[in-house]
Write a protein that binds this DNA or RNA. Structure first.
Length: 498
RNA sequence: GCCCCCAUCGUCUAGGGGACUAGGACGUAGCCCUUUCAAGGCUAAAACCAGGGUUCGAAUCCCUGUGGGGGCACCA
């Protein structure tokens, strides 16, 4: 077994930009990155854009942004270059063609002239007969010289891998051990399309070899074609990388794989499986990294809080788990809260600012810096800060009159309590958490009220909310003048109700 | 239909023949703290898929079944 804990690993993340970056991709990229950093190796980004029909250029920008947001900086890639450029498969067409030719010359591949229509018909018939859909080998029997002549004459063709018809192959996956398959269950897969571009099966294998990739970490959806990849590598006589097939992510219910459809449902409940959405929803990259790292990997029986530095130090291929994992979003909230608490105040303030601005608030940084400490432990996401603390930036608040009365109190009594509170606060030279609390507690006592009853009225009056950050700290930030103004306004509302 | 993979509380997981009365975390419930909401502290309920082997001894190893997942494209 390769000792990858010490040797510098060259690990690649090779996504296909066909849509927004998914949590599963994020986790794969994370593990790639961790292994590279841990071993002092390289993390390589390679764009697998051989499918020109599904390729979306804008996805590529989104992908890079999401990766960088997560903190996964690559050492080689399409934008930063590197010794094995280009890092975009659509620019490597001729390289693949050369290797495909080599395969043909060595008798490991052949030209196929079957039309897509014939193949579709074939498949239909096979399915009707309940047979496994598979190429019937028609062109496999064409004499290679004749085939070459037809290609030279310009006949449309693809290139297929000539799968051995006898025997089997045993491949080794890091998580699952040896996996054996009979060759007769494998197909003569197409490795070069009629447009001359290689398919993943060839392109990825060639690139991984050329780019000297030591570990291929990818999703378990590749397990079925894994033997084909090994066949191709062995046909070239190349050395195999260490294969690591990660488990897939399941729906939160544990039933079925995450899909686009489920994603739409999730959005209604305020969740998403796309990195960019999570960012917008106020999740910290630290939390997303910590959370996804733990879906399919564990460190020991009690440690769960990890920074990126911790993960780089502690990550290990040996502790990866092969079974599929259901996504648990409530745990993401938990981790997000933990990482928010872990942030220094200036850092949190800086991250909070764009969320308030996006909500349309004119944010003064010095004021936000005073708010941050009193909301830090009450928010699970950055977005929640806007809900709980948006009132600080409002000129006026609009309490719901129904909710303005104290608990188990009439409007008249509430108005009276508010009036007296107004007087006590007005008498203070300045409202701070230290100066305001005691006088108001005394007042509650004098009125025979519980502190909570009086504070409830004031909370609603000053913040316009039933739930808010601590009352006196909030008053201090709102400022004496506005506090009194808001209480006055509440008194009037209460009097109207009485 | 065929091939491959997987299987511990609702979820993520620890465990890898005796240390298991199966541990932790999220979530849930209760209590404490408390001006609201959180945060924090304490407590509780909650799992080895089934059946056969192997063994003195199985959550752990083997087989079968069942269940779940993935794949069977000129997608990746």
């Amino acid at each position: 077994m390769a000792n990858d804990s010490t040797a510098a690993a060259r690990v690649r993340f090779a996504p296909s930009p066909t849509g927004p970056t998914h949590l599963g991709s994020g986790r794969t990229a994370l593990y790639d990155y961790l292994l590279a950093r841990q071993t002092g190796g390289q993390f390589i980004l390679r764009i697998e854009d051989t499918d020109r029909k599904r390729y979306k250029p804008e996805s590529e920008n989104e992908l890079m942004e999401s990766l960088r947001w997560l903190g996964l900086e690559w050492d080689e890639g399409p934008d930063v270059g590197g010794p094995h450029a280009p890092y975009r498969q659509s620019k490597r067409k001729d390289i693949y063609l050369g290797y495909a030719q080599e395969l043909i010359n060595e008798g490991h591949a052949y030209y196929c002239f079957c039309s897509p229509e014939r193949l579709a018909r074939l498949r239909q018939e096979q399915q009707r007969r309940k047979e496994p859909p598979r190429y019937d080998g028609l062109c496999r029997r064409i004499d290679p010289q004749e085939a070459a002549a037809r290609v030279a004459a310009g006949e449309s063709h693809v290139i297929r891998f000539k799968m051995p018809q006898e025997g089997g192959i045993t491949v080794h996956d890091r998580l699952r051990g040896d996996i054996s398959v009979e060759n007769r269950n494998l197909d003569d897969y197409i490795i070069v399309k009629s447009d001359g571009l290689a398919l993943y099966h060839l392109a990825a294998i060639v690139d991984d070899h050329l780019m000297e990739i030591s570990h291929v970490i990818r999703g378990s959806e590749w397990l079925p074609t894994f033997p084909l990849h090994a066949h191709i590598i062995r046909s070239f006589g190349w050395q195999e990388p260490e294969w690591v097939h990660l488990s897939v992510f399941l729906k939160p219910s544990g039933k079925g794989k995450m899909s686009k459809r489920d994603s739409a449902d999730l959005m209604k409940d305020g969740f998403s499986i796309y990195i960019a959405d999570l960012r917008e929803m106020g999740y910290l990259p630290e939390a997303v990294v910590n959370w996804t790292a733990l879906m399919g990997w564990s460190y020991d029986d009690h440690t769960e809080f990890f920074s990126m530095a911790d993960l780089i130090e502690k990550f290990s291929l040996d502790r990866l788990n092969p079974s599929p994992a259901a996504i648990n979003f409530s745990k993401l909230d938990h981790f997000n809260g933990l990482h928010i608490h872990n942030l220094e105040i200036p850092d949190l303030t800086r991250r909070l600012q764009p969320f308030f601005e996006a909500a349309g608030y004119q944010v003064e940084e010095s004021q936000l810096a005073r708010i941050t400490p009193i909301i830090q432990e009450r928010i699970a996401t950055l977005e929640e800060a806007v809900e709980i603390a948006g009132f600080f930036f409002e000129e006026q608040v609009h309490p719901n009159p129904e909710e303005l009365t104290g608990k188990k109190m009439e409007a008249a009594a509430s108005a009276q309590a508010a009036r007296l509170a107004y007087e006590r606060l007005a008498a203070l030279p300045e409202i701070t958490a230290e100066t305001a609390e005691q006088p108001l507690r005394d007042l509650a006592d004098e009125l025979g009220l519980k502190a909570g009853q009086l504070f409830g009225i004031l909370r609603m009056a000053v913040t316009g909310q039933r739930v808010s950050p601590p009352l006196f700290e909030s008053m201090a930030i709102v400022g004496k003048e506005k506090v009194l103004e808001r209480i006055q306004n509440a008194i009037e509302m209460l009097e109207e109700m009485a």
